[in-house]
Amino acid sequence: MDCSNPAITKAMSEGVRLHTVPRMPRILLAACGCIDALKFRLLCQEFSGWAKISVVFTKSSLRFIDTESLFPKGLNVYRSNSANELLQWADIMVIAPLSAHTLAKIVGGICDDLLTRIVQAWDRKKPFYVAPSMHLFMWKNPFTERHLKCIEEEHDITIITRKERGSMTVIEPQEDEDKGEECEIGAMVEPSEISYTVKIAHEIILTYYPC
């Protein structure tokens, strides 16, 4: 078991009781409007192998995602005002990809759509993961550092990453070296890696803090 992963270390130190009866974890997946939303189908497939999933979209993410043809039958897709229902249903929340705009909205406490309403009302005792995706210029901009620090200190959101950032962990965008300096993009980490990180952290919680 990879205990060098900061998200997993955090899971071991801060166990959370998710439910009273052993069952498949209920995961709420959310997508924001950026190019990596094209990988969202793959992300759903990765998670549906070991968890029950429901999905939430921002309006702009629908430019990249075809909700009708993309998902397996029986998958709950939410776009309207069902925040309370989802908040009660979900054990874990994952926003992947997380855009710079939605990150700023979370930090600013803006809740003008279903996703941001869920984030603001989320039970902080439940695990919450985000995988940012943005252009490298945006990733290096001082706003990003400030916003991630705010999430770390005030929102207690576990932002998954390869690099440790204090008590918080972030899945940091990758630098696309093949395309040269001009086209470097802060791409979202691969869906398989996101799924693996969340799954292992969840298993550790159940192992160290059984129901």
Partner: peptide, 8 residues
């Protein structure tokens, strides 16, 4: 929007 880092 600029002060808050919003970018829509």
């Amino acid at each position: 929007e600029i002060a808050g880092g919003l970018c829509d």
